[in-house]
């Protein structure tokens, strides 16, 4: 199948190095300590953070740092045909683990000893790149909950189809079976916290693809930062003196 037309356009009309439209909104769940909705094109994810709060299961309590937990689930209506089991299958446990490890690396857990932080992410619409969207949403929600973090983590995917590197794959491109690199970076520190790849790539091409994904992460980070700053300013002026 042809994923990049001779004119250099992808199936959804994007250029190879073009990202889908992103939109973020803070404060979607009123009962949570922090929450956010993150959209990348047709992929839509909601994240809610509870905590730091008292550890529910005493035996899991850690005496010098916070316990971070994460649950990833997909809504029944998120995919083309309805999901039977929205969570608890092998794929979602793996993604929960990935998100947990990525977020734990950037939260300053030692500042909140003997407490727990719960991150719940749910996919409302799945159109490829849910993993990255979830990480971006979780970052926003954690910042909204006022949890101290080392840096902003953002994530973006990139692929390689028809011998062209493609940024931010959608569902059709993702299911083509080509290589799919998901990268998560700490933007200010310029460090990689997450790197996953399906199938194989030659070394030199891999470098290009990864560089492309990193550029994507940085673009997302700029946007996320804008959203957070706007939100902070709004809270401050509304509160008044």
């Amino acid at each position: 199948m042809e994923y990049v037309s001779p004119e250099g356009l992808r199936l959804d009309g994007r250029r190879p190095m073009e990202m889908r439209q992103i939109r973020a909104e803070i404060g979607a769940v009123s009962n949570a300590d922090g929450s956010a909705v993150f959209e990348m094109g047709n992929t839509k994810v909601i994240a809610a953070v509870y905590g730091p709060r008292e550890v529910q299961n005493r035996s899991q309590q850690i005496n010098d740092q916070a316990l971070v937990r994460c649950e990833y689930s997909m809504a029944n209506f998120s995919t083309g045909d309805r999901m039977r089991k929205p969570k608890g299958d092998r794929r979602s446990t793996e993604i929960s683990l990935v998100i947990r490890q990525t977020m734990e690396a950037c939260i300053l857990t030692h500042l909140m000893p003997r407490s727990q932080i719960d991150i719940f992410v749910q996919v409302l619409q799945a159109d490829g790149g849910t993993r990255s969207a979830c990480i971006n949403a979780a970052t926003l929600a954690l910042a909204d909950a006022g949890i101290p973090m080392r840096d902003i983590v953002t994530s973006c995917s990139a692929g390689f189809l028809n011998s062209t590197p493609l940024l931010d794959l959608n569902y059709v491109e993702d299911s083509a079976g080509g290589p799919d690199v998901t990268v998560g970076i700490l933007t200010k520190l310029d460090k990689v916290t997450l790197l996953q790849m399906d199938s194989k790539l030659p070394m030199d091409i891999f470098e290009n693809v990864m560089q492309l994904a990193i550029e994507g992460c940085k673009a997302i980070a700029n946007y996320i930062r804008e959203v957070m700053l706007e939100n902070t300013k709004e809270l401050e002026y509304r509160r008044g003196i």
Partner: peptide
């Protein structure tokens, strides 16, 4: 490490978080 407002008291510099526990 937080979203908030920078406060300065003499030499001390800190960030006052808004929405937090």
């Amino acid at each position: 490490t937080l979203c908030g407002v920078v406060e300065r008291v003499n030499k001390l510099v800190y960030v006052r978080a808004l929405r937090a526990r």
